[in-house]
Design a protein around this nucleic acid. Structure first.
Lengths: 119, 119
DNA sequence: TAATGCTATTTAGGTTCGCTAAATAGCATT
DNA sequence: AATGCTATTTAGCGAACCTAAATAGCATTA
C-alpha cells in the first residue's frame, strides 16, 4: 500500500483519534505518540511534527486544555491534556459524523463489489 | 458539523469512491458529480474543481483510461472513463486498506466510549 | 437570432493537514 | 563527559480538496 494513501486517509480522523485518547484519560504528547505506534501497522509511525501541531490546534480551538507537570524522575516536563466541555461535545459530533461517513463510503464499495460478482 | 471536518475526512477516500463508481460502470465527470450529490447529506456537494482534477490524477497514474464520446443530443461531448487492470488492482488494495483503517479508528472510538460508560 | 438553460469540462489560486527533518532540553546511568 | 531515554518545538514541504469563474455545445423559445 502506497504510503501516500495512508497519509491522506488520516486527515481529519487523526484529530478525532487524539481527542479519543485524551478523552479516555489525561495524557501528553509523547505518550500519545507511543500509544499511536501500537497501531503503526495501519496508521504508520506517528511523528512529533505531526502530533504536537495537532495538540496546539486543538488547544487553540478550546477542545482540550493543558496542565504543565514538573520534570519527571527520568526526562523532561510534560504537558498533560484533557478534554474541555466543548471538546467532549465536538468529539461526540465527530464520532457521529464518522459513523455516517463510514456507512456512506461502504455503500460505494458495496455497489462496486456487487458489480464484480455479477460479471 | 463544521464543514472543515467533512473536507478533511474525504481526503483519500474520495479518490477511492471515484474508482468504485468508475469500476461499477463506464462513466464521466458530470455523471459522477450528480451521483455523488445523492450523498450530499454526508459528503457535501461535490464540485467540478474537486472531481475533474482527481480524474486527471487517476488517468496520469494509469488507474483509469478515457474514451472520448461525441457531443450528445443535448450538451457537450463527454469523456467516458473505465478502470485499467492496474486500477482494479489498486482499488482492491485500497478497499482492503480502508477496511483495516476503519477497524483501527473504531477501536480508538470504542476505547473512548467505554471510558465514558464506566464513569 | 438572441436569450436562456442544461450538459459538460477546464483551470487558477487558496487553505489545511500531515510529513520530513532537525534542534533543544532535562534527567539518569556509565 | 558521554550516552540514552524522555519530552517538546518548529521551519518548510507536498498533496488533497475547495472556491470561483470561464468556456463551450446543443435545444428551446420568444
Amino acid at each position: 500500500m502506497d504510503n501516500r494513501y495512508v497519509q491522506q486517509f488520516k486527515k481529519g480522523s487523526l484529530e478525532m483519534i487524539l481527542l479519543c485518547l485524551i478523552g479516555r484519560k489525561e495524557t501528553y504528547g509523547y505518550e500519545i505518540i507511543t500509544e499511536l505506534n501500537n497501531s503503526a501497522s495501519v496508521l504508520g509511525y506517528a511523528k512529533e511534527g505531526t502530533i504536537y501541531p495537532i495538540l496546539y490546534r486543538l488547544q487553540e480551538a478550546e477542545l482540550i486544555k493543558c496542565r504543565l507537570a514538573p520534570a519527571a524522575a527520568n526526562g523532561g516536563s510534560k504537558k498533560f491534556y484533557s478534554l474541555t466541555h466543548k471538546g467532549q461535545e465536538v468529539l461526540g459530533e465527530l464520532i457521529e459524523f464518522w459513523t455516517n461517513y463510514e456507512d456512506c463510503v461502504n455503500g460505494f464499495i458495496a455497489t462496486y463489489q456487487q458489480t464484480e460478482v455479477s460479471e
